[in-house]
Design a protein around this nucleic acid. Sequence first.
RNA 1: GGGCGUAUAGCUCAGUGGUAGAGCACUGUAUUGACAUUGCAGGGGUCGGAAGUUCAACUCUUCCUACGCCCA
Length: 971
Amino acid sequence: MTEQLPTTFNPAEIEARWYQHWEEKGLFRPERPDAEPFTIVNPPPNVTGSLHIGHALDNTLQDIVVRYERLRGKDALWVVGTDHAGIATQMVVERQLEERQDKRTNYSREEFVDKVWEWKAESGGTITGQLRRLGCSMDWSREQFTMDEHFTKAVLKTFVDLYNDGLIYRDKRLVNWDPKLKTAISDLEVESQNIPGHFWHFKYPLEDGVTLPDGRDYIEVATTRPETMLADMAVAVHPSDERYASVVGKHVVLPITGRKVPIITDEHADPELGSGAVKITPGHDFNDFEVGKRAGIAAGEMLNMLDGDANVCQTADGLVPEEYLGLHRFKRDGVSGARELVVQRLKEQGFLIPHITKTKKGETQELDAEPRTIATPFGDRGGVVIEPWLTDQWYVDAEKLAQKPIQQVKDGTIEIVPQSWEKTFFNWMENIQPWCISRQLWWGHRIPAWFGPKVGKDQKKASPVKINLRADSPPGQIKISTVEPSERVAFVAMTEAEAIAQAKEYYPDNFDVGVGEHDVGVPDMVRLIRDPDVLDTWFSSALWPFATLGWPNESDLLEKHFPNDLLISGFDILFFWDARMMMMGQYNMGKAPWPKLYLHGLVRAADGAKMSKSKGNVVDPLGLIDEYGADALRFFMAAMESQGRDIKMDNERVKGYRNFATKLWNATRFCQSNGIGASSTLAAPEARLAANQWIIGEVQQTVEALDAAMADLRFDAAANTIYQFTWSKFCDWYLELIKPVFAEGASETAATETREVAGWALDQIFVMLHPFMPFITEELWHAQGALNGPENGNPRSEYPIITAKWPNPRANVSKPATDAIDWVIELTSNVRSAKNELGIAPGAKLAAFLPSASELASSTIERSSAAIERLARLTPVTLGEAPDGPAMQVTAGGDVFVIPLEGIIDIAEEKARLKKALEASQKEAKSLEGRLGNANFVERAKPEAVEKAKADFAHHSAEAERLTAALARLG
RNA sequence: GGGCGUAUAGCUCAGUGGUAGAGCACUGUAUUGACAUUGCAGGGGUCGGAAGUUCAACUCUUCCUACGCCCA
């Protein structure tokens, strides 16, 4: 890429080329052993996923920070990798099998897992390729996967350590069961939705002729889930509810099952809700579970009436009638379920209390149930209603692990940006529930626990036959798969061998211990079996900040890059991922994983709706890249990212930033056509000309503003700063100001200086813009380098911009010089504006008189007459009184130019213009006068505010006077 | 029911205790050499409503209204 740039900027043409160059040359992680580290870990996307607009935002922000820090000389490491995403990935592969009329259970576990690995090999590169298209400068040489061998080691170690510390335990309690995926899920994976449903009222007859004070021989209960009455174990009333005090301790006989259940008291029963009496199904409702426990029912005794598919099964007491067995819990695919049958039977038997209501026409109507909106839990992956189900699962004691992170956020060890998220964080962390981490899936990290039969102390020395817990096991051989969970003991270890060793310690000396289901002819042997479940995906990704760096092995890499410096994530995974990294970071590493957590919002559709596949309003970032270029999309994301707000998609704005890239492209072409090439110094060149000093000063201010914005992670402010500088200062003013320097016959010294300064300023733009728009800046950087390259001894063109140096102008610009340019700019704008209002052709050159010139004016007119002529189109400018006759007045600073208008314009129009300006000044002056006349203001306001008001008043009064005089002169 | 957030120009959004800004859109205008993916100029806002604090409120406080999100 030398010689000439094409006349139009084509993003697609340069993007692939530069990305490949960076990656091949290892530029995303240049060797900087002595440099200060800077580390970000990428939230690992699902391995089989593809890039959506949220990834585009998340990764753009991270790349901006990483490129910025790399340019500032740090050893910047952006860890990248993918997540095995247990449920999501298994679902994808199962769906593929379904399409071929096949299913998972047609295969062995090993065969199926192999299929998932095959699928990963096939499609795992999709999203990583897409991240490259976005320009993300991650360290691909160390790409990670949460099921890499070393990662698995980290996961197992964490599990074993937590278990040994009592922070992981097995418990029988209600879990959120997804009957479609047939696995337990955590609280976070449950989404509550309000859906229309019903509230049924039933009569539960009192036993043995007992009656309520009002004579009724039944208790009325209401429920939204009638089918669960098959497993009801009590009726609860509030302890202070007088209506039922006389029957507490008595029993009701449940319709259908005939089960006798007690009437108990519990705070959970709300006297205001329905009849005040509530049916209690401890095995299928979270609240009832707690009520049941308080009533002294152990988890193991709680009745269960559903199987893993949420079909009715027989309860332990065998009281569920035959006709219910096998029915689904409720109507599904048009087929009635247990719910419908229960309602039908109760109605037939007279136990249903109808809901009486009036129609719109005022007629009384009788319904089976009261219509009601019900907050219903759904699995976020499976999409079906979650069933609270009593099972044995592994839990993390999240409450204990949460304590240190809570404190760290409170004491500032971890800063959450924007801070408003702290409250949400505390609210969740301070009420955190045990974290269910076991999943009944095949794809994932298998839990390192091996079960064997529990042995009582007295059995320790007994013969093998006596610890044979089940009749169907041959003597001396114990198959754990036939042992009730409550009769199992777990050996938790990193390896099978360690688990066996533990087991040998546990079992009587004369026992041998092995692993596996079957055993033929080996007596006196305990067969352990590994827990078939896998861990919640988030259990492994919680280790991401250090397991990706090699932990638990110690290394320089880990030492240098942990803790990380910053985490950027969407607020939607604050609890799923961020909080758990805090817990695991603290537990495993003894430290917070990063000192700062930046949370960004969601990218929404143009109408503000959440994007979703079902709504069909998903915007594909790759499509935007194809249309406008990756640089434009990235700049859009940055410019729109203000803290604490979601981003609404706006294609027009992306287009605007594509235009911005084109603007820079053309500005560079202009520079090249005037012999302006690459800079050769990091510091600003020596400059004498005012325009050059001015742009150097502006660069300096821009760098400062940009650094300030980046320090605060104000991506919008950073993007707008570089945008405004490039377009409004550099292109609109500086390039226009220097055009005369390259005119024929102009000073060669001035041209040389200007080439140096312009080339330098352009390079500073490239570097400052590079984190936001890496592709075009790299392209133009090299194009400029080709113009003033190594053949001239310029070292700058030997390295790419990605590893260039962040601007450090160290310039000393003179105030009179920059003031002069600001003055020219003001004069030019005012002249243009006046001409426009008076309908004078913009190109018309006008003579101007300056009756009393300030020092700034006279020296600027002398030194920068070419710029004044070219931009303000005033020529000649005479220092002195204007001849009599109609004229317009234009100001710059305190200087008033008189521009004769004879023959050019209608005097009336100038008078109108002056009058408008006069009114504005008078209004301002009057308001300021009023304020200054207020003693309270003068006495109590800050002195600088008073000073400013005085100065403004003086200015506006003088302006009004001047305008009045000018008007008078026009007659 | 609890918590959080938002409300500023037609649209999308910044913003500060001293009477408001950007981009897009709109209006007018310019076109022989960087750029029409452009230049120049302009119109447009009682900063959601009410009360309070203050010399001064778009900004701070309280309440209200609307919308959105999270949790139960």
